[in-house]
Design a binder for these strands. Structure first.
Lengths: 149, 149
DNA sequence: GTATCTGCAAATTTTTTGCCAGTAG
DNA sequence: CTACTGGCAAAAAATTTGCAGATAC
């Protein structure tokens, strides 16, 4: 199992940025890597409480920001006004269903030459990362969507 | 000048989705197409007031959503908790400066084959659009960023 | 003429903050 | 020990909503 590795990883990342390892941060991180959903802060809160009943929502917010700061999580934002968090930091993309709002992972990254082309067009911009996201309808929403369209 | 064309376009798009043409919606739309910045609702509000002093912030929010609904604007969201709007609907991407927050346009779109590859990986997902965004440092922030890094 | 829209202010939702006690190192 | 954290509740920021009068068609 991965649990121990996960904890070591977190401990390391926190140390590197001069922050402390705590039970709360560990629980939040565990929750995040355990799911391939992309939960909102509130959803993380609900899930983490199973692990750590006493934790507060504010702490979840603080922990999530800490993880983002350490590079162990990525914050995604969508038009519905709530941020979502992703515990995967390897290159991959997202597909977002316009009907149910669910976010699914897409493996792989853009080929280098492709990125270079964009970099050139960005003209003087120092590119450090990118985000690519498809939108549309997931398999379970697609049938209904095409009927109503 | 484009002004008249712009208005016809708006009138058309509104009709198509069964909504009415109003001075407020026109002013919001004009503001949006006139800038290559990517303003927040509040920034649109401030700008529109030069045109239409009596307009209210709530109306700006409503008008922006109407425009998005008609396909005349795109809503972008970032981690800083406020949504931004883009009046360009032709294929193009964005580059966002991590230091100053400014969003710049990048011309062009992903080549078809590239998109098709992603579509396949999305496995059963009905893709209707995508969003590609670079992050990094803009020409005026890059020098400082590399010094501090 | 009538359904839709606007403006206002109040409500909601999401996220952040101040402060004191608790804990990691 | 001492500085960094967590929990709480209150604050702040962003966006939405209900309603009555105004307006597009």
């Amino acid at each position: 199992m991965q649990t121990e590795t996960t904890e070591v990883l977190l401990r390391h990342a926190l140390e590197e940025s001069g922050q402390r390892f705590t039970e709360q941060r560990a629980a939040v991180y565990r929750t995040l890597v355990a799911t391939d959903q992309h939960p909102t802060a509130d959803e993380v809160f609900l899930a983490v409480r199973h692990d750590l009943p006493g934790i507060s929502l504010a702490t979840v917010y603080k922990s999530l920001e800490t993880l983002v700061g350490c590079g162990l999580a990525v914050k995604l934002t969508y038009g519905d006004g709530s941020a979502r968090y992703d515990g995967r930091t390897d290159p991959h993309h997202h597909a977002r269903c316009l009907a149910c709002g669910r976010v699914t992972d897409i493996e792989g990254s853009l080929p280098g030459p492709q990125l270079d082309m964009l970099r050139e067009r960005a003209d003087g911009f120092l590119v450090t990362g990118y985000r690519l996201e498809l939108s549309g309808y997931c398999p379970s929403c697609a049938p209904r969507a095409s009927v109503s369209a």
